[in-house]
Design a binder for these strands. Structure first.
Lengths: 213, 213
DNA sequence: TCATTAATTTAACAGCGTTCGGTTCCCTTG
DNA sequence: CAAGGGAACCGAACGCTGTTAAATTAATGA
């Protein structure tokens, strides 16, 4: 039984990606072995090389699938939010945090990949990585239209906001934060709220009622 | 020549730590092999097991040495700064960014270690990891004494500021940021400035002249 | 001087990603 | 409907990894 029959043929490529995402619920990306993926798919490790050049190519495909998933979720939230621009910004951040905390290893693979995985290249940066910033930038421009952040560069603000949430999640996912009293999700939401409070404080002519809740 | 003579004995433990830090200038921590460390030290891989229980114990020691180094640099900066609390906060952030960008792999090992390295445990979190927050918290309290961030929780603000800088550095170190126009160090400094502008905007009774430079 | 202890070596093992050569099936061509 | 060619997969094998075991040599103490 070297080559499988047509009726029992499986789409190994798609299966490998979905099963890898599932396996990432337990393990970290670098602790994942091709033997584990192959076992989950139902084949032997060498069979994977017919669909991926090497292990990093598989991880890159999972990386991209993760981005597609994240965008879909953010789209859902964006479509469901009917509030002002500030609320949309906040809900976007919350959705981002929820995704990261529900898929820690996948999030790490997407935004903090190992240096040798070829994921740090400009391909992914320009292809999908910067789409995150475009999303966020649009939100920043929207709140600026309502009088917040007067005269600020939207790109820089967007990068700063993204950095804050990404940094908080990165620290929270490693227990490197005072999470003893609250859940990681609550801590992430609190970080989003703190940034929103900063934005509110910069309203032209306005004044901060409370700098951080 | 199984056991070395007394006159040509080297402190393998100290050598392994310092040579590992040197090797981390090129490679990432997870791409580092014990054979490379042993070659740099001048011994064979099994000799390292007489001084470290396993590879993660070596990485943990390097992790701690990195923290000691970072604290020393921040102390230097703190002692040299004679400005107001706001300037001290800014200079602390700049020193932090400089350290991270000059030692990328070491920084990653310190603040974003692989999950299986035993570095995510509560030992390091409570031991040295939270000392970063204490430093920062003191700075936040100091600026609050000057009227900024009224009524805010210093712990939450400190965590938010730390998250922002850590997140920005994490993204910058992977080329996941619009760094095309500026250097990574300039981008990091700009992020620090943006956060300082946010803080300035929250001054009680005051008003933001410019929300972000 | 001789046993004991300590420090490092060489040798070996299991597991990893990856490559090679063979085997089985499908699909086209005569 | 036979024959060949290509595609898809498997078992075996290779080099490298971290790690352990056994052997070897230097220092120490009686």
């Amino acid at each position: 039984m070297a080559r499988p029959r047509k009726d029992q043929a499986r789409d190994i490529r798609a299966l490998a990606i979905s099963e890898t995402i599932r396996l990432l619920e337990d393990r970290d990306a670098r602790d994942l072995t091709l033997a584990q993926v192959a076992a989950a798919v139902g084949c032997r490790p060498p069979a994977l090389y017919g669909h991926f050049r090497d292990k990093t190519a598989l991880l890159r495909a999972v990386h991209d699938a993760g981005f597609a998933w994240l965008y879909a979720e953010k789209m859902d939230v964006g479509a469901g939010t009917r509030g002002d621009a500030l609320a949309r910004l906040r809900e976007g951040g919350r959705a981002y945090a929820r995704f990261a905390l529900k898929n820690p290893a996948l999030y790490r693979l997407m935004f903090d990949p190992p240096r040798d995985s070829g994921l740090a290249g400009t391909l992914f940066e320009s292809d999908v990585g910067l789409k995150s910033l475009d999303f966020l930038r649009a939100g920043v421009v929207a709140v600026q239209a309502e009088g917040y952040l007067p005269g600020a560069d939207p790109d820089r603000i967007a990068f700063t906001l993204w950095s804050t949430l990404h940094g908080a999640l990165s620290l929270l996912l490693q227990g490197r934060a005072p999470t003893a009293d609250t859940s990681p999700l609550a801590a992430a939401d609190a970080t989003v709220d703190a940034m929103m409070a900063f934005i509110v404080a910069t309203r032209a002519g306005g004044r901060a009622e409370e700098s951080a809740p």
